[in-house]
Each structure stands twice: as structure tokens, then as C-alpha cells.
């Protein structure tokens, strides 16, 4: 399952927001990916997420696969995007 979301945090996915995002992703059993411009990285990897260089207003894709995929996509979307 996947969804698209526009990042609303003032700082984009910088160190702190990125850390929060990765922490949240790690709380799910399923595999989670985050992608920008067609490049997908493991959302449970802080290095991966940082390396995407996501700024405010960037559209990203969140994709999850596994047991709790729906919940994962929904909650991660809420965390970084507009309500």
C-alpha cells in the first residue's frame, strides 16, 4: 500500500524531524519505504531518509508492505504532512 504526501514541516525532513519520522517507522512491524523523485529508501534508516534531502513542500511517497501497513502509512502521513 502507498500514498503521496506533501511535507509541511518548516524544516523539511531535517535531523530532528527525520529522527522522529524514522523512530515512528521503526515502531511498525511492516517494511516501510519513503521515496522522492522515484528514489525509494528504507524509511527505518536515518541515513537513508537524510540522504533524500527532503525540504518543505516536497512531495514524497510512503509505501508499506506487511502486517500493519495501513496503520503505518496513515500515521506516518499524519506525522509529516498536512492534516
Amino acid at each position: 500500500m502507498e500514498t503521496r504526501v506533501v511535507v509541511s514541516d518548516e524544516n523539511g525532513l531535517h535531523a530532528r524531524p527525520a529522527a522522529q519520522f524514522v523512530k515512528a517507522a521503526n515502531s511498525f512491524v511492516c517494511d516501510v519505504w519513503i521515496g522522492k523523485d522515484g528514489r525509494m529508501v528504507n524509511a527505518k534508516s536515518i541515513v537513508g531518509v537524510l540522504s533524500l534531502g527532503v525540504g518543505k513542500g516536497t512531495e514524497i511517497v510512503i509505501k508499506a508492505q506487511g502486517q500493519d501497513e495501513e496503520k503505518a502509512v496513515e500515521e506516518l502521513k499524519k506525522l509529516i504532512g498536512e492534516a
Partner: peptide, 16 residues
């Protein structure tokens, strides 16, 4: 203290 959070996450980072 938050800097250490980021460090800990890196040690848990699957890619790394």
C-alpha cells in the same frame, strides 16, 4: 541531549 538520539538512531540504522 537530542544529538545523542540521532547518534543512537544511526546505530540502529539498518542501512548503516
Amino acid at each position: 541531549a537530542e544529538i545523542f538520539d540521532a547518534h543512537i538512531l544511526m546505530l540502529k540504522d539498518p542501512m548503516f
